[in-house]
């Protein structure tokens, strides 16, 4: 139970960062932390105590295995996060080119 709670706290740390930070790069990093906490959550509930890693090898018999599906999901979500981080960084670079600042409070041409 503690480990799930820690995971949720990590999620909240990321969320706190997204809400309160003013720097574009810090916002992107906070989003990444949120993503990592979710990935961690997926991995830890797939863990079975005393289980084998989910790969068939020559000469080993199939015993209890860790659930492999969440690991596949995590791989997919890592790819998606990679894409979104790249996109956000590209937007941040462009925004820096236009406004000459990373401070979100100074990037306010739209009303809200």
């Amino acid at each position: 139970m503690t480990i799930y709670l820690m995971c949720f706290i990590l999620f909240l740390v990321g969320f706190y960062g997204v809400i309160t930070k003013r720097d574009l790069v810090k916002i992107i990093l906070s989003l990444a932390i949120m993503g990592y906490s979710t990935n961690l959550f997926l991995i830890i509930f797939a863990y079975r105590t005393g289980a084998h890693y989910p790969i068939l090898e020559k000469g080993t018999s199939v015993t209890a295995m860790v659930d492999p599906l969440p690991q596949a999901l995590v791989l997919t979500s890592i790819v998606i996060e990679l894409g979104i981080t790249a996109l956000l960084v590209a937007l941040a670079v462009r925004l820096y080119g236009k406004y000459k600042t990373f401070d979100i409070t100074k990037i306010r041409r739209l009303l809200g």
């Binding site: 790249a86 590209a90 670079v93 462009r94 820096y96 080119g97």
Partner: peptide, 19 residues
């Protein structure tokens, strides 16, 4: 695609500096 993402980003950093 991973290489090109970084390549493109590195490229527009240079553009910005040249401006």
């Amino acid at each position: 695609s991973l290489f090109l993402v970084v390549w493109v980003m590195a490229a527009f950093k240079i553009e910005e500096e040249e401006e």
